[in-house]
Write a protein that binds this DNA or RNA. Structure first.
Lengths: 208, 208
DNA sequence: CCTTGTGAAAACTTTCACAGCT
DNA sequence: AGCTGTGAAAGTTTTCACAAGG
C-alpha cells in the first residue's frame, strides 16, 4: 500500500474527506459508512473506498468506519496529526486575510511567520504574528525547521521569493500569485489560481 | 470543433495560456511557437496544440501563432473578450481582498456588486464598490443580468447563500468556503479550497 | 528545416461488480 | 442483509509520432 502509485486526485480528496468526518464527529456520529462519509460531497462511495484503500484497510465489512479512528488515520496519512507550521510571504490584503484564515487551523496548520519587504508593514502585528523583514527568513528557518511556504506577493516577484524560500530550506510552496514557478523538481509546488478558476467557470457557462 | 467533448483540464489551462500570451505581447512578441507559449508553464507544447485544436486551427505550420490573434481567440473562447461582471457575497477579510484583487481585471472580470448581511459592513465603500445588503441581491440582479457569483461567507452559511444566488439568477458559482455545495446540476460550481490545497501539499512532502 | 495539427498509443482515473467478512 | 475491499472494465487525458504546410 505504501509506495504504490497514488493518483493526484486521490491526494486532493483526502482533506475533503477529513473535513466531512470532522463534521460527522461534531454531530456525535461514531460509525459511518462510505455512503455517509461521501454524502453531499459529490463523490461516489466507491471512490472513497478506492482512495482509502491505497493506504490500508480501515473499515469493517458490513458495518462501516469508526469515525474517530478514521479521522486519526487521515490526519496521520496527510501528515497533520501534529500541528504543522508554515510561513507566508507577502502581507498584502490577500496575505493578511490568509494569516487569519480559520480553514487552516481546522486542519492543524498554522502560519507561524509572515514576511514582507515593505518597511511600512514590517513590525506590524497581525493576528498575533509580527510581520518580519523578508531578509530574516533564512536566519529564522535555520533555527526552526519549517518545510512549507505560502507566496502572496505580486506575480512579478513570485519567482524570486520562491527561489529564496528554497534557498532557506522550504520544500513545498503554495503559490497564490498568478504565475507559474520554476523550481528544482524535488520541490513541491501547488497553485491557487483564483482568476483562472473564474475564467474556466465563465467558459463553461458560455459553452457547456 | 464545437460540441466536441472538451476535457476539464483543457478548460482550466485556457486562462493560463492567455496570461502567458499577454506577457509575450507586453514583451512586444508578434509571433510565438507552441514551445514559446508554454515556456516556463510546465506544460508540453504538444498539450497546448492539442488543447487549442478543440476549438479550431489558429497557427501557421512552420511559423507559429500570431500573438495578438491568439489572445483575441482565447478571450473569445473563454468568453472574456468583453468585460464580464460578477457579484461577491461575504465581505470579510478574504472577500475584501478579492474585491481589490488585480488578477481578475487582467482577465476582463469585474466584481460589480458586493453583498453582506452584517449591518456594520453594509454601506461601506471598498475599492469604489458599495457593500449592499444581501437582501437586495435578487432585486439588483433583476435589473442587471449577471451570471457568476463568488461566495466568501463562512462554511456554515455557504449553502444558503448559494441557493439564494441561484434563486436570483446566478448560473455559475465560485466557492471559497471550505464546504461542498449542492445545487441543481445545471448550475456550474467551482471550488477554491485553500486549506485542502495546503493539506495535499503537506501530504506530498511527507510521502512522495 | 521549422512548426502545426491530429490520429493512435500509452498512461492514468473512475466506475463497476462481486467475493468476503460482520 | 449490509457494507467493505479490490481486481477488471470502462472511460478519460496525455504523450507520441508523423504527415502536411510554410
Amino acid at each position: 500500500m505504501k509506495n504504490k502509485y497514488i493518483p493526484d486526485d486521490t491526494i486532493r480528496r483526502l482533506p475533503v474527506y477529513l473535513r466531512n468526518l470532522l463534521n460527522l464527529k461534531k454531530q456525535e456520529k461514531k460509525i459511518a459508512s462510505s455512503k455517509e462519509i461521501c454524502f453531499s460531497l459529490n463523490i461516489l462511495p466507491d471512490q472513497f473506498r478506492k482512495d482509502i484503500s491505497y493506504f490500508g484497510t480501515f473499515g469493517k465489512r458490513g458495518v462501516g468506519y469508526d469515525v474517530d479512528k478514521l479521522i486519526y488515520t487521515l490526519e496521520k496519512i496527510i501528515g497533520i496529526d501534529k500541528k504543522v507550521k508554515v510561513i507566508l510571504v507577502g502581507v498584502g490584503r490577500l496575505g493578511s486575510a490568509l494569516i487569519r484564515y480559520k480553514g487552516f487551523s481546522a486542519l492543524n496548520i498554522e502560519i507561524s511567520y509572515a514576511f514582507d519587504n515593505d518597511p511600512k508593514k514590517i513590525g506590524k502585528i497581525i493576528e498575533g504574528i509580527e510581520v518580519k523583514d523578508i531578509e530574516k527568513m533564512e536566519e529564522i528557518l535555520k533555527e526552526e525547521k519549517i518545510l512549507v511556504g505560502i507566496i502572496c506577493v505580486p506575480a512579478n516577484k513570485a519567482q524570486k521569493v520562491a527561489e529564496y524560500m528554497v534557498k532557506s530550506g522550504i520544500k513545498g510552496v503554495l503559490n497564490f500569485a498568478p504565475t507559474t514557478l520554476n523550481l528544482p523538481k524535488k520541490i513541491f509546488v501547488s497553485y491557487v489560481d483564483m482568476a483562472s478558476e473564474l475564467g474556466s467557470l465563465i467558459f463553461k457557462l458560455n459553452n457547456l
